[in-house]
Nucleic acid binder design. Structure first.
Lengths: 247, 247
DNA sequence: AATCGCGCCTAACATGGGTTAGTGTGGCTC
DNA sequence: GAGCCACACTAACCCATGTTAGGCGCGATT
């Protein structure tokens, strides 16, 4: 076991390396984290508002969102998460979840006990700093979405989101071109962007007609990155990636 | 000097106590932080997008906001900050600011060197945890605003914001009833809530007509807290206050 | 191969909130 | 005390987006 790193732990390490430089002992410590693996189906809640979890949930495969249900049965999605993300890192400090974490497609995750994570952050300040950094980037993404929903048009918001997902996938080395799966229904896009399903549909068609994107099923192709970036007023600075992506 | 605590440091300690329990040595350490005081005028930027500050900015007096200017000259305000808040705590981990911090009214702040804060968090893990917690609460507020701008009506958003500010002021013991200053123009409210100035005005009048609030100048009185809370779909859970406020 | 359900798509209509273009007023400056 | 400026407020009009109500196609189930 020692010396080798499972693919599960590799996911986590690769993600951490997008936000911080890790030494070998730090990587080894991450690789030694205990994990309880779990497969999950579509539309499952991994963590629920009001819960006080004792484990954190590392995404290994799938596409995850954080969301909250509002008074009138509406839903707001706050963020999407990709493999390597720990979606509920915050509950290390805030015991009660103020929102839920849900799966949009079937996938796999690993539950890591808080105790193990606390021990890790106590022993390796650099890892604590990286987690802290991760949470701050999380917050930066919320701010960017807030700016979008508050002040950008529907066209800008959708273009922006597509740029963001593509940039993050590239930084995780899960893709290396402008082709990827966006396994999200138009209704879910609407819940993320504060739009109705109907309007999401209208706008997507506009973007296709304008030649900025194409899509077959959930597979999405960005045909004209510069124009899409411009249409979305997208500047990746807020993602605070170590190596500037884009192109 | 030893044994006494300046009112500047007191502000910070009182704020920290709303999010964590502090021991005497921890309080003493906070009270010993070096501070460079500065008065500022209305509409000043305390920190600007793109900056890489070497100090954090503790608010002592005034009303501060964090904001970003978008491509088309529009502005989105992300949060308001009250005395005791460190508005740019995040730059301890993310060196480049991805947004600005601006004063809405004249006030006073204290700049604290990053080095002193790092030393403090190294020596006192509980303080590091409290900072971490503060940042997470910050993010929780962003999420709540995102939910508002994305899915709530203008009336709900405005009522919600008024409830939030009042609740936070109470938790800081800056007020103890439902009367407070909201030193913010209607245009600024609009920038925070994703609304036009005209519409903010319309809605405020509606709330007054409905007997939920009154206001003379910037002084605002919540006349009917339960109804306002309901109108705003306000649940203070997301503020993660140690002692549940509200009423 | 019929049925079901879900997600994409469309059309017609409704409306919340934006835009533009002001008026009114109180506090400040000179 | 005249002038100015910032801000609250108003009115008329407009449009981006929401709502309602479906149709269509495809994969899964039987």
């Amino acid at each position: 076991m020692a010396g080798s790193t499972s693919s599960e732990h590799g996911r986590l390490i690769r993600k951490m390396e997008t936000i911080a430089v890790l030494t070998e002992p730090e990587k080894a410590a991450l690789a030694g984290l205990p994990m309880r693996l779990k497969d999950f189906a579509e539309d499952t809640d991994l963590v629920r508002e009001g819960d006080t979890p004792q484990e954190c949930c590392l995404i290994l495969e799938g596409f995850i969102c954080r969301y909250k249900l509002l008074g009138q049965g509406q839903r707001q999605i706050f963020s999407f998460h990709l493999p390597g993300d720990i979606a509920d890192l915050q509950c290390l400090q805030l015991s009660v979840m103020d929102h839920s974490v849900g799966a949009l497609v079937p996938g796999r995750c690993a539950y890591i006990p808080h105790t193990a994570l606390r021990e890790l952050t106590d022993r390796f300040p650099a890892i604590a700093a990286a987690f802290w950094r991760d949470i701050l980037i999380d917050a930066a993404i919320f701010r960017e979405w807030l700016a979008g929903v508050g002040r950008r048009t529907a066209h800008q918001r959708i273009a922006h989101l597509i740029c963001e997902v593509c940039t993050r996938l590239k930084s995780l080395k899960l893709i290396d071109d402008h082709v990827f799966d966006l396994p999200v229904t138009q209704a879910e896009l609407g819940d993320a962007l504060g739009l109705s399903t109907v309007h999401v549909n209208r706008v997507l068609q506009d973007l296709r007609r304008a030649g900025l994107i194409t899509s077959k099923g959930r597979r999405l192709v960005i045909e004209d990155w510069p124009k899409l970036q411009e249409a979305g007023d997208f500047d990746p600075a807020y993602l605070h990636l170590r190596a500037p992506e884009g192109r």
